[in-house]
Design a protein around this nucleic acid. Structure first.
Length: 321
DNA sequence: ATACACGCCTGCTGGC
DNA sequence: TGCCAGCAGGCGTGTA
């Protein structure tokens, strides 16, 4: 479930079950799911088993769970869903077809009767294995702000030691546009340094994170910008206006539980979101633009595709190579 | 520094 | 019916 809204749905679903939970057992079904982990599968299992998860944090499309410090330095369990990853929670559920890693965790909470909750299985499922997990060291954030979105912990535990630390392999990822510490001026400055199409800039996770092909196309349509408009020629006002549209699109998608075209993109309970019904251009080639009625087109772009309204989003005069 | 191609995988769809 | 090309929501690396 790739883009920000879908990853946030997963993060929010994990939060209640994993916060304070202890990892009882780790089973690596397919080692290809550990390509982000620096070390063999046994090392991953050894580092994770017995640890306590402190929170579920997200920046852009990266998800991580800070672990209690057992003396080897602060670490976190990092997960990236890639193109087809899912994280499912459950008890005694039949094994999913493409399960790659399974964690048995002991939740910290009690049932309504005050009883200890039974262990929960956390399954990392990934058809195409572009996603992966890792146990990674964390480092302080460069701007000293909280590293990412942590849900209820943002209020409940704002000063936790884990709060301002980020996994090493996520440290090059820019903040996402829904992050209170996102720096609009920095975004404008970086965009003005790029003589490339604005869509490339939106997709560059080092400039702004969380946006993938769907939400890039939707945001550009909302802002009436063609994807090849050179970023360095866009006014500051156009760029901040685009950021506003990006935020609006991401927030609406979050309200709808994310975008699902099929069973690949689901929350921790295996359920789909509904934002696909509200898409204006993505996947709607041949259908009318919701704003002007012109026919939506699909074009090749960066080994994938772009969708746009040919009237609302006119091609710039000089195309970029 | 930036821009681009490519590899990493599985599964589905559409055309022949 | 079978086969094959093309396509799918992402990231990291290597090369110019």
């Amino acid at each position: 479930m790739p883009e920000l809204p879908e990853v946030e749905v997963v993060r929010a679903g994990l939060e209640p079950s994993v916060t304070g939970a202890r990892v009882l057992h780790v089973h690596v079904v397919d080692e290809r799911a550990l390509t982000r982990h620096r070390g063999p599968a046994e090392d991953f299992v050894a580092r994770l088993t017995g640890r306590t998860v402190q929170a579920a944090v997200r920046r852009g499309k990266f998800l991580w769970m800070p672990l209690d410090d057992v003396g080897a330095g602060p670490e976190a369990l990092v997960a990236h869903l890639g193109m087809s990853g899912q994280i499912l929670l459950g008890r005694d559920r039949p094994a999913a077809r493409h399960r790659r890693v399974v964690l048995a965790v002991q939740p910290a909470g009690r049932t309504a009767d005050g009883l200890v909750e039974p262990p929960v299985e956390l399954e990392f499922v990934d058809q195409r294995t572009f996603g992966s997990m890792a146990v990674d060291a964390t480092v302080p954030t460069v701007d000293s702000a909280p590293a990412g979105h942590a849900g209820a912990a943002d209020q409940a535990d704002p000063d936790g030691a884990w709060r301002r630390r980020i996994p090493t392999q996520v440290s090059h990822i820019a903040r996402d546009p829904l992050d209170p510490a996102f720096d609009d001026a920095r975004f404008v400055a970086l965009a003005h340094r790029r003589h490339s199409g604005i869509k490339r800039v939106l997709l560059d996770q080092g400039v702004v994170s969380g946006i993938g092909n769907i939400y890039a196309d939707e945001s550009l349509w909302a802002a009436r910008l063609h994807h090849d408009r050179p970023a360095d020629a866009l006014s500051r006002r156009a760029l901040t206006g685009l950021l506003d549209e990006v935020r609006a699109v991401l927030r609406r998608a979050l309200e709808d539980g994310g975008t699902s075209f099929d069973a690949q993109y689901v929350n921790v309970n295996g359920q789909s979101g509904y934002f696909s019904q509200r898409l204006a251009v993505y996947g709607r080639q041949g259908q009318p633009c919701p704003r002007c009625g012109a026919t939506i087109v699909r074009e090749a772009f960066m080994n994938r595709s772009s969708h746009r309204c040919p009237v609302c989003q006119r091609r710039p005069r000089s195309r970029l190579g």
